[in-house]
Design a protein around this nucleic acid. Structure first.
Length: 722
DNA sequence: CCCGAGGACCTTTTT
DNA sequence: GGTCCTCGGG
């Protein structure tokens, strides 16, 4: 490879493989980028290289990621490398870019100019409304099932008029789906899946638009390609015409989002569809010590169907991996405390230490231990800023002002804060709206002009007053005004724990302010001054698409607590992977799924490769799950790590004072293994989810499909293997 | 309208 | 065990 080119300062600190990836010419590429191999660096250097060498203009580049955080990071790093403005580049998330397309071509997409985006919670309540209006009770299936049905079909590109019902239930579901589509269209709202599907359909149906973008985007770059869904892949294909090239970066071993539609098979399809001759593998790892990498390599080697790669580092072996077995989950947590205190005394800052777990429920015990030991910590995940109830309330006022057809928003705030418009009045409005094909707002206005209800008239006036305010002053001031005059602040001031909610409402004002400043920096001055309605709509898009990561008190030196899933992409000096028990990690439910165990193994691989210098693996022999003590075996993944890499520690803090515990009964001694399907005379079919006791008194925990979770004493119960 | 009792639920998550 | 939702009485 010729790297002597003087023009390419973008290549100076890249390794040979990275350079090969960055400088690939006139062909599409699949870059198999292992954990810690400089994936983002390659992607942004690629953009810089393309532009610098005039292979592409900024406007000819489309780069897509999954999260806003990643998109921001990408833009930041591109502009750090290149002295150009990045405004003309299309860089963003799949949803953000689709929204941009749909906004630009709203007419061709069959949408109103100002349409609102529903987040999952909004979608669910919209579905509930449909089901209620069709008198479908949630006995047969829930609104959650329905939500899954709709999103899965949209993901498959199936509209309700194409879907083929195979039984009565799916027939009913499809009827609801159809009504839901109509309702969204009428109300001018679009859910997340719709953003993608609508955009795909726009490109499919409209040749002129499709060809325009195909000739515009010469280079389409995709990050985390293994996480793309089938729909997203189709979208990418449609945007990339014959003379365009796709540059996909991903790692099949880090595909952990199968459950939400990720289709790592796209990597194989890509090779075929884009005629990719050689996959470029980035295997040099710049993050972890070799003991850690070798453990990761050994674990992932048990998966079949990999594209295959082996990580290595030039940085030496490092410490052995420490494996600690605690008697129970509380003692596991106190081991964490001991180790962390020790590390901290040795000068390690808390924020370089992460505690990972498989599910969120596990954080409770750990958090309690942290609190009682005064160790600062931060839990990732959970409720986002824009998802908080009080924020959604103010946003609903804004949404209704922005789009009077948004019945979701109307219903949310018509009686919040309480203003004496009870469920009976709301039902009357609903009926009136239905009979006269009006929106709820339309019905309220009709009621108001006929003086049917003074309370509803007041509400109509309130909204109109707030709307005037929006047009009279800036967005942030208007939000402040709404917070007060809607009565929200007063309402929360009466609440005993309402003060934090009021703080959040004020925080929303600053969020609006900084959003406008960002827009100004991005050069959208026109958008900001010309038309208040568009300013508002733009802000509302922002609040739906950017869920608002917890305003991280970035300066704080705090321990990092998160699920393994949310640790993807991050790195820490010290990593504790906790709860390494069969049933938890791998999760018992994954054992029932096809290929489930392989995804769990990838999860383990992701967890292990987060660690730079020190890796701790911990497990507990017994653990409280759903209020029950459960006994699990050590995770099977632990057996996959070569012995030479591990230092085993066990029950270092023996608890002589604790009451006699039933020793965990080895699973190999009985036939009722976790995951076994069994049948019971009375309860029917079920799956073994745990067990406790000993030879003489063995009890098995079984989850029955119809009767929930039961503990059965094997001495009495008559069980058969199904 | 508010509050408390009772029931169902319980893997992972971004947009 | 905890949370979230629903429903019914005050």
């Amino acid at each position: 490879m010729n790297v002597t080119n003087t023009q390419n300062r973008y290549l100076t600190d890249l390794n040979e493989k990275q350079i090969e990836a960055v400088t690939i010419s006139n062909e599409s590429a699949l870059i198999l980028a292992g954990a810690g191999s400089g994936k983002t660096k390659v992607l942004t250097s690629r953009v810089a290289w393309l532009i610098h060498n005039q292979v592409a203009s900024p406007g000819g580049i489309l780069a897509v990621t999954f999260t806003n955080k990643a998109a921001k990071e990408m833009l930041l790093r591109i502009s750090a490398q290149l002295p150009i403005n990045t405004r003309s580049m299309w860089v963003g998330t799949f949803h953000g870019l689709c929204n941009r397309f749909l906004k630009k071509h709203f007419k061709d997409a069959g949408l109103p100019e100002i349409f609102q985006i529903l987040d999952s919670a909004d979608q669910k309540s919209a579905i509930k409304r449909v089901m209620k209006s069709m008198n479908v009770d949630e006995e047969l299936f829930t609104s959650k099932d329905m939500q899954y049905f709709i999103n899965a079909n949209k993901e498959e590109g199936l509209r309700s008029n194409i879907f083929k019902a195979y039984d009565d239930i799916s027939k009913k579901k499809n009827e609801i789906y159809s009504m839901y589509e109509k309702q969204c269209q009428k109300e001018g709202v679009v859910d997340f899946a719709e953003l993608l599907l609508r955009c795909l359909e726009l490109l499919q149906k409209n040749t002129a638009i499709r060809e325009h973008y195909q000739s515009t985007f010469k280079h389409v770059l995709v990050d985390e390609f293994q996480d793309t869904s089938k729909l997203q892949y189709q979208w990418l294909k449609l945007l990339t015409a014959d003379e365009s090239y796709i540059f996909a970066v991903g790692d099949d071993d880090q595909s952990i989002y199968g459950f939400r539609g990720a289709s790592p098979g796209n990597m194989k399809d890509l090779q075929k569809d884009f005629n990719i001759k050689n996959v470029i593998k980035l295997e040099q790892n710049y993050r972890s010590k070799n003991n850690i990498l070798n453990a990761a390599n050994a674990i992932i080697d048990n998966n079949k169907d990999r594209l295959g790669k082996n990580l290595w580092a030039a940085s030496g072996d490092g410490d052995l991996i420490r494996l600690y077995t605690a008697l129970d989950d509380r003692l596991e947590a106190s081991y964490l405390i001991d180790e962390i205190k020790m590390l901290h005394r040795a000068g390690k800052s808390y924020d370089q230490i992460a505690i990972l777990y498989r599910n969120n429920a596990q954080s409770r015990v750990i958090e309690m231990a942290m609190v009682s030991n005064n160790i600062p910590y931060r839990v990732y995940g959970g409720l986002r800023f824009f998802e908080r109830a009080e924020i959604k309330h103010t946003l609903a006022y804004l949404r209704l002002i922005s789009n009077k057809n948004d019945d979701n928003a109307f219903i949310r705030i018509v009686n919040f804060p309480p203003r004496g418009i009870g469920s009976r009045s709301i039902e009357q409005l609903e009926d009136y709206a239905k009979n006269n094909s009006l929106s709820m707002w339309g019905a309220a206005k009709a009621f108001s002009s006929e003086n049917k209800s003074p309370k509803i008239s007041n509400f109509v006036e309130l909204i109109q007053g707030l709307e005037d305010q929006i047009h009279a002053t800036g967005l942030d001031e208007s939000i402040d005004y709404i917070n007060t005059y809607s009565g929200l602040k007063e309402h929360y001031s009466k609440d005993k724990d309402g003060s934090s909610r009021i703080e959040n409402l004020d925080e929303l004002v600053s969020a609006a302010k900084s959003h406008m400043l960002d827009r100004r920096d991005e050069g959208h001055e026109n958008l900001l001054t010309k038309n208040q309605s568009l300013v508002l709509a733009d802000f509302l898009d922002f609040t739906s698409l950017e869920s608002g990561e917890l305003q991280a008190s970035a300066g704080d030196d705090a321990l990092q607590l998160m699920t393994i899933h949310s640790s993807k992409g991050l790195e820490f000096d010290v990593v504790f992977i906790t709860g390494l028990e069969d049933g938890l990690c791998p999760h018992e439910r994954s054992l029932l799924e096809d290929k489930g165990i392989e995804e769990e193994r990838r999860l383990m691989y992701v967890a292990v490769t987060r660690a730079k210098n020190k890796l701790y693996l911990t497990l507990a022999q017994s653990r409280m799950i759903y209020g029950q003590a459960t006994y699990n075996l050590p995770s099977r993944f632990l057996d996959e790590i070569p012995d030479g890499l591990i230092k085993r520690l066990s029950n270092r803090k023996e608890v002589s004072s604790s009451p006699t515990r039933i020793a965990p009964y080895s699973e190999s001694n009985h036939i009722w293994k976790v995951g076994t399907t069994v049948s019971h005379q009375k309860f029917g079919e079920g799956v073994v989810t745990g067990y406790e006791g000993n030879e003489n008194d063995l009890r098995i925990q079984i989850k029955f499909s119809g009767h929930g979770i039961k503990w059965l004493a094997m001495e009495y119960a008559k069980l058969n293997k199904a």
